[in-house]
Computed example of a mutant assay.
Amino acid sequence: MTAILDLQIASTGDNIPSQADFQLWTDTVLTHLNLTEREMTIRVVDEDEIQQLNHQYRGKDKTTNVLSFPFEQPALFLPAGITLDPASISDEMPNLLGDLVVCTQVVATEAEQQNKIISHHWAHMIIHGTLHLLGYDHIEDDEADIMESLEITLLHKLAIDDPYQDH
């Protein structure tokens, strides 16, 4: 197992994947990237909570499918006169990746509108969000190409079609 998951179900929605599904999807990402023992929280919510979080953290007063909150390493403040040997400070990514918040109703609506199998869309949202926690982004075209290519590769490992093809 490569992902240590804290799964929080705070939704009354239908078609919420199992713990095993979430584990498979996150493990697929981490294994492909040769990462082990990374911890993350996945919180499954309803529309009111995702809208409030989207408004609070992104300034967008609307629902969304998934929000990613990468862990930010706090600065280390040492008392005066105390120093650390620079060789003892690791540049490795911390084991704590961060939090994903996924909206049940938005995922279901998108899957229906895009003619996708709902479990496949859930897998895509979890993989997409996990990649964000790992620092991948899609703001710039070249970044989007890299991230989408990786998503397609990971979903293919799960026997899931390219989510970016026309449906």
Results as ranks from 00 to 15, higher is better:
D166N: 11
L53G: 03
I117H: 11
I146Y: 06
S18A: 09
Y164R: 04
D61L: 11
Q105V: 08
A20V: 13
Y136L: 10
I126C: 01
L7I: 15
I82L: 15
H138P: 02
W122F: 07
A80C: 01
G135Q: 10
E49M: 13
S11Y: 10
I9S: 08
A159K: 15
N95G: 14
L134V: 07
T63V: 15
L131P: 01
L96P: 00
T41D: 03
D6T: 14
Q165W: 09
H32T: 11
D91H: 13
A3Q: 00
I9T: 12
L97C: 04
H121G: 00
T36I: 10
H156I: 01
K60P: 02
I126E: 00
C103T: 08
D145I: 12
F71W: 10
I139R: 14
M93H: 09
M40C: 08
I42F: 02
H167T: 08
K157W: 00
T26Y: 02
S88L: 09
T28L: 06
K60V: 15
E37Y: 08
R43A: 11
T36W: 01
Y136G: 04
N115R: 13
L67S: 04
I127G: 03
M1V: 09
T28F: 04
P79V: 06
T153K: 12
D161H: 12
D27N: 15
H121P: 00
F69Q: 06
I82A: 12
T153D: 13
P79R: 10
T64L: 04
T26R: 01
I9C: 08
P94C: 05
H121W: 12
H156G: 07
K62D: 12
L35Q: 14
Q73S: 09
K116H: 09
Q8A: 09
Q165H: 12
I160N: 01
D48K: 11
I152R: 04
H55D: 11
